[in-house]
Design a protein around this nucleic acid. Sequence first.
DNA 1: ACTGTATATGAGCATATGTTCATATACAGT
DNA 2: ACTGTATATGAACATATGCTCATATACAGT
Lengths: 102, 102
Amino acid sequence: MEQREHSFLTTETVDEVSRVFKALADPTRIKILYLLSQEECSVNHIAEVLELTQSAVSHQLSFLRNLKLVKYRRDGNSFFYTYDDEHVITILNQVISHVSCK
Amino acid sequence: MEQREHSFLTTETVDEVSRVFKALADPTRIKILYLLSQEECSVNHIAEVLELTQSAVSHQLSFLRNLKLVKYRRDGNSFFYTYDDEHVITILNQVISHVSCK
DNA sequence: ACTGTATATGAGCATATGTTCATATACAGT
DNA sequence: ACTGTATATGAACATATGCTCATATACAGT
């Protein structure tokens, strides 16, 4: 049996990588992140543009917030969200390009 | 209300992007793809190295095959798998690097 | 032909996920 | 203080997911 050099990933790394990809694996979150990659948006604006309920959007934003992929500022009653992980947006755009041109 | 230029994604694009990220969102598939990024492997070898059952590995390979992320050749009783989407491997490695160094 | 080895696959099951519905919270305008 | 607007959040539910177990398939060696 031939022996070769390998590099292995730690459980923590695999789990963290999995979390990042999970965040990008849902159509709703893809649409939200893609929208936020273009402009700061309020929750209602996201819901209107993407034709989703306020609750669904809010739940997904909560999910993305936990992963520190988005951040927000408050202005009166509205919460304006922006993306908070440049690298993840880059990855998303790479895959969108990859998929679009084939 | 201010009007701005936006680009939107088609449903097909979003779904396809989602499929790619879903493939990368599971710890087992991450480990398998990472292993295959380093060397061609038989199913049993993958199962042994990653300490998974043959069945679990085979099911995941079937999943990855459907998405054309891996391909295989037969040699006697063994099936040797290799990755089949360079770009997806690149994305995986990018995220691994991103996660590892923070 | 028979046996052993490697892999694939279907069924069943437990858990995870994403949505809706109802409700809570918090601020703004009056 | 009261009302309206914007958002967050918990519970419930339906669907998706990933595993195990049992079994099928296919080839190799004898």
